[in-house]
Design a binder for these strands. Sequence first.
DNA 1: ACACTCGGGACCTCCCGTTGTT
DNA 2: AACAACGGGAGGTCCCGAGTGT
Lengths: 206, 206, 206, 206
Amino acid sequence: MVRRDPKATRQKLLEAAFHAFYEQGFQGTGLDDVLARTDVTKGALYHHFANKMELGYAVVQEMLRPWMLRQWVDPLGTSGDPVSEILATQRAILGHMDEHQFHMGCPVNNLTQEMASVDEGFRLRLEALMQEWRSAIAKALDRGRAAGTVREDVDPEATAAFLVAAWEGMSGTGKTSRDRNLMRSMGSVMESFLETLRPQPSTVPG
Amino acid sequence: MVRRDPKATRQKLLEAAFHAFYEQGFQGTGLDDVLARTDVTKGALYHHFANKMELGYAVVQEMLRPWMLRQWVDPLGTSGDPVSEILATQRAILGHMDEHQFHMGCPVNNLTQEMASVDEGFRLRLEALMQEWRSAIAKALDRGRAAGTVREDVDPEATAAFLVAAWEGMSGTGKTSRDRNLMRSMGSVMESFLETLRPQPSTVPG
Amino acid sequence: MVRRDPKATRQKLLEAAFHAFYEQGFQGTGLDDVLARTDVTKGALYHHFANKMELGYAVVQEMLRPWMLRQWVDPLGTSGDPVSEILATQRAILGHMDEHQFHMGCPVNNLTQEMASVDEGFRLRLEALMQEWRSAIAKALDRGRAAGTVREDVDPEATAAFLVAAWEGMSGTGKTSRDRNLMRSMGSVMESFLETLRPQPSTVPG
Amino acid sequence: MVRRDPKATRQKLLEAAFHAFYEQGFQGTGLDDVLARTDVTKGALYHHFANKMELGYAVVQEMLRPWMLRQWVDPLGTSGDPVSEILATQRAILGHMDEHQFHMGCPVNNLTQEMASVDEGFRLRLEALMQEWRSAIAKALDRGRAAGTVREDVDPEATAAFLVAAWEGMSGTGKTSRDRNLMRSMGSVMESFLETLRPQPSTVPG
DNA sequence: ACACTCGGGACCTCCCGTTGTT
DNA sequence: AACAACGGGAGGTCCCGAGTGT
């Protein structure tokens, strides 16, 4: 086994903490729970992180943020038809979601709901992350407006915020209900909402 | 001082527990935190509730459920125009929400996100509560369909689920961002979505 | 064994803590050290004392203070010849002091030197205790002045403070040197100083 | 920056340790507290000192001892009137003492009271230091006896021990009471005691 | 119905000291 | 000579729950 590999040690801690917080919540997780998922000792943990809070903050920025970008932002691309891209992204995520993820919900949302009103440090970091998410969607919608694939009267910022909120709400609903049909139903409603963002075909016949 | 008033004691505990869980989370709250908000002792608490979990369950059913019904279900009425009723309810809630509520988010959502994947007893009770909520909305939408104020092709169950999810997501966004403008923006998008549920005016041009 | 005897439990803790602090210092003593001297558990300890600090404060007021009064104040009596009383008290203490006490020094002095500059709560309580001690001596010296057994030009407060300081210093010296002869020597010097407090015999030669 | 300067590193550690132990006590000070006062790392510390205890011993011998000699022994000089010299030294020290020193007490006394009964290594080293101090005073008093400025019947060793003890006790009183007037009062009594060491003027009347 | 006392373990944090490396 | 990484345990605190008494 490789001793003395500080980067790897830190990474192992972050990953173990991410999973533990995801499954038991931040407050419900003991540092021993985190350590039990690794071969790292408490001394090493406290060498890399000042305290539990800082470990939590690092999880937000070094695990949650990349996870969110990979899942929701990167697939967006830069084409002129964001509605189709968003639709495809949503379908991909809902389709590929395994049982575990389905039951546990969105890690960003979980931590947000648990910690935003408990600790300001968490709130600030999570809000920055959400803002980045909303911005990416808003920018995409703006591209669509420029390209004429999104209606002129759509407010990109407001719509992006609504979309993100709805997704978070849906993930919460899935986690609580554990009902995939319900999930699919909400997905359909979301899709029809997304379609209303496109310019209406001139409904003038002939 | 009136000693021996079991009902009042129980109620005081439920109210204190509700507020404590609301503000610090279930896992982040100690029984002593609850007791510190009352003049009740631990002996009395354990007389009324078997353990912390049962106290939590009781809060869900005796505090959260009535709160939800009062806020979201009762105002719905029985008229034939549910979209307007929902619109009015949402406006009333968003409008009257004070700073504290705004910062703390929806108590149902908070507890759901924190505990649904941690404890099955919580999940079941919270899911029942959410289901009741969705049902009430779905029933209202159905009345609208019958009355012709809601489009025929609207799926009441799916749409209700989506609406509830979106509201929960919005409350979470408000809590994290603490940005009332953002809240208003999402409200507007939600309103325009609600409007799409009404039958379209015949778009026959002049 | 008698269960449920809160007063006895509290007392056992105070006594164990007194001895532990006396022998290892406050900072050098762990709560487990205290508990190991009793059959009390940590839960019980934290029922009776809010934290280690409060336990320390209680030791000062409920153990150290009575100990000091019994040893130095009560024997003083109310006669008109305080110098003789003080002399007798000092001799009794120095004479009866066992090896253990000799090696450990004065418990009041030990705690004072260790904690006065570390924690304000300790300093205040210890200063109050010392003040009581000085006052008792000063009052006695005053009685002597009134009775003519103490010189008119003796400042009771100042002299009392000096006496107490010197005793504390002597106890510290004994503890460090572990030299009983040295202790006796200092005792003699102290005695001759005490004698100078009496009115001088008219030194008129025959 | 000059790396690799072992002597300077060692000195920095001793100084930081001296101040930390002075302010928080030996047992109350963590090695990290010491390191935080320097730009030295733990590796360097453990290169120069085997463990915390040895660091403490080195502080006694390389910081406390010179400090004591400079303050109490060097000013003594070699004249034939030690009482006046001691008087002057005491006045200088009491007069020049700043607030910090006044509140913190005598570093030698602090460490002595805290550690003498806890660790034999400390006790031995501190006792040697105190012995050196007492010896210097005793030797001075002896010089006085030879010169006729000190009474024949004064026991130099015993009186020196008493003086040192009284000073230590006074410094402890000052630290606990934080009362400069009390300090001055004790100083006056001490001065009048010192005067009694001089040969009495022949009280032969006309 | 309620109060007080107590049990024992889990929690986060810190601490002293060691080891591998440069 | 000095440094960063790490080991492992002890420290004070808190917490849930049980037991006893009224």
